[in-house]
Amino acid sequence: MQRMLRKIIRVGTVTEPPGKADNRIETLGALLDEAIRRRFQGSLAIRQVDAGSCNGCELEIHALNNPYYDIERFGIHFVASPRHADMLLVTGPVSRNMETALRMTYDAVPNPKLVVAAGDCAVRGGEFGCSYALSGKVANVIPVDVAVQGCPPTPADLIQGILTALGLAR
């Protein structure tokens, strides 16, 4: 236990504080914080859905929760059920085998809801193109509010996308 405490003290806080340095995250974080406080009473619940990705996008979405980005400090948390969610964060070209599951997940999110399509595949099909096995970009299957480009999008891109979607929420 002592060793753990020593390690925690030695490492210190690596989280990048909002609005302090020139880093994009920090500026974005401050905007995000404010938008969530105003529109979602301090809490935004996101349900992530992989509709066919290569899992690269998932790694970057995971990174949002690492101590550098620590997205939870802005009131954003990833939830286990679409029924608890305000927003769907969808990755991947929608595979034919996932199309029904994606529709059902979308329907399970209570209204009003937001959808962010994350990654080049989700936005326009990406490297996988047009195939018998794919339904293509996410917008082919469910309504999309915001598209986040990148293969995969960086954590900063993802925060920007979430923020843009919040700007649309009325």
Partner: peptide, 26 residues
């Protein structure tokens, strides 16, 4: 998450195929 990767490989040149191979499992 079957994306038809094997079929999509067909007809690509080596460089394009390498990009796809890089996305078999990110």
């Amino acid at each position: 998450v079957h994306k038809g990767i094997e079929k999509s490989m067909e007809g690509r040149d080596a460089f394009s195929a390498a990009r796809l191979a890089a996305r078999i499992s990110g």
